[in-house]
Design a protein around this nucleic acid. Structure first.
Lengths: 193, 193
DNA sequence: AATAAAAATTAATATACCTTAAGAATACTA
DNA sequence: TAGTATTCTTAAGGTATATTAATTTTTATT
């Protein structure tokens, strides 16, 4: 069933009653997207937060010069959205696109606010989710500042082996902040990978 | 009084009763630190989250090669901690040091858990706090990937003018991920700043 | 006020990473 | 299945930023 994964994801941090499960799942919309479909377009409103049942998504910022910067990848069991645009009803600074055919559960901000007000447990759950997201992003900043590109690549492949299987080298390069050509020379020197 | 600022900070997002204020403030410890005092040492446990009443703090990671990377600055009305170490009772990956004499309110994790369990409003407050921290950090990642050093410097001084007044150029350089020498040449070209 | 220490500046040289370009390998599409 | 587009790879040359070092300015200490 489509809700097993999301319920076990939430169940890691809070325990829900049957009624709470019913209320919560009634707010979810199941979505199927094809490879290369846009889940979110940059500069448009971001109405939903998405949970990945399966597949792979990529969030990327497109600069005025046409340069892509990958903000994050998401695979099964991950949540993804443009958090600023989502929580402030602002226009988004990133695109979210399917790397492969994917199945998502979408939750609108309007519904999330209803959930928060009726089920305070979800405030706790999202607090924990955001705590982990913040820690992850802060660690990324530290590593961007303190490590060379080859070191960042090594950490990436050992930290996210499942993502490495799904996305192109070019996309990894744009996450690490190097050109695909330079990532290639990095890999040529790493005899192993 | 020492609690005015923190209560107005919290009051922006949740409304507290008098009893809740009393309960919450009873968990805070007032601390005074002198310039260059360590509030947190890297590799040690991080027991507290800190709210700045006044002064300036800097969080920085020290690599094995001795290179400093500034993770964040905090001025009056900001919260600061090593979030990973704090929430997981893990050893910290950063130092937090006073840039100038500062007055802090410290809240231990043990007490924060008591507050969360007794006052669910504080789950909401921290959810919002973490949401903003995550968005800020994600934006920083995007800018590190997509902008040149001079552009990053321009954004920094226009986004954080109050911090610019308090910290050294060297510290700003280590936040931007450039050497102090290079920041200097950037500034020399910017006729204005 | 004098001295020491740290930060800021400037400049020469070095290097990590980028740009451009072209060919080879994979992956899509008709 | 061929044809086309995309990604990956390799290499030459270029640029942004680092390194080293020396000087000046600012800040801290006695």
């Amino acid at each position: 069933m489509s809700y097993d994964l999301i319920l076990s994801n939430i169940g890691k941090y809070v325990v829900l009653t049957e009624m709470e499960v019913t209320f919560f799942t009634s707010k979810l919309e199941l979505m199927e997207v094809k490879k290369k479909d846009f889940v979110l377009h940059q500069n448009e409103r971001c109405k939903h937060i998405y949970f990945l049942n399966n597949g792979t998504l990529r969030a990327f910022h497109l600069s005025t010069e046409g340069k892509e910067s990958t903000v994050m990848f998401a695979i099964a069991d991950w949540w993804i959205t443009d958090m600023h645009a989502f929580t402030n009803n602002a226009s988004s600074i990133m695109n979210i696109m399917a790397v492969e055919d994917s199945q998502l559960l979408a939750l609108s901000y309007v519904n999330l606010e209803r959930i928060w007000s009726q089920l305070p447990k979800f405030e706790k759950f999202f607090r924990i989710l955001l705590q982990k997201a913040y820690v992850r992003e802060q660690l990324r900043s530290i590593q961007n500042l303190s490590l060379s590109a080859p070191e960042r690549y090594d950490r990436f492949i050992s930290k996210y082996p499942e993502i490495v299987k799904k996305v192109t080298k070019k996309q990894i390069a744009s996450y690490l902040g190097v050109t695909p050509e330079f990532l290639c020379t990095i890999r040529a020197k790493n005899v192993d990978t």
